[in-house]
């Protein structure tokens, strides 16, 4: 055993909640994409297109519950990682915005999340190294 029983329980619960929410996300993305393609003129396209947001909210709920189950150092590490991702994403997005003014292609908003996710991982690694 490398970690306490309560943390192992919290991690197991998070894996279950996260895995379930991501499975629901994959199913709703697939289902709504097929439905939208099959119903090009429907007025329900927007609400249907938004359905995958529901499992994303469940992922957020699982992440918040997991965060709150952590002790003070693990929470600090996560806050530092999130701050790193927030600032890094802001710099990247603002910088690329200026690139666009001189002709670089306009990028999808999805890139913002992708950038933040990558920087969150980098920040988590840096923070975990810092505190050992």
């Amino acid at each position: 055993m490398t970690e306490t029983a309560s943390l192992r329980r919290a991690a197991r619960r998070y894996r279950l909640e996260f895995g379930g929410a991501m499975a629901a996300y994959a199913l709703t993305v697939l289902g709504t994409s097929l439905w939208i393609d099959a119903n090009p003129g429907s007025s329900a396209r927007l609400p249907v297109a938004l359905l995958p947001v529901i499992p994303v909210v469940l992922v957020v709920v699982a992440a918040v519950r997991f965060f709150r189950s952590q002790d003070e150092l693990l929470r600090r590490r996560q806050v530092e990682a999130l701050a790193f991702a927030f600032v890094g994403t802001a710099l990247a997005v603002i910088t690329y915005g200026f690139f666009e003014t001189v002709g670089f292609p306009r990028l999808s908003a999805w890139w913002t999340w992708g950038t933040m996710a990558i920087l969150w991982c980098v920040g988590t690694f840096v923070s975990s190294r810092r505190y050992g």
């Binding site: 490398t2 970690e3 943390l7 002790d71 150092l73 693990l74 505190y131």
Partner: peptide, 14 residues
């Protein structure tokens, strides 16, 4: 370290 972590209610990493 794990014994102490359990008694303090924190992680072994802490």
């Amino acid at each position: 370290q794990l014994d102490l972590a359990e008694q303090l209610g924190v992680s072994r990493q802490t």
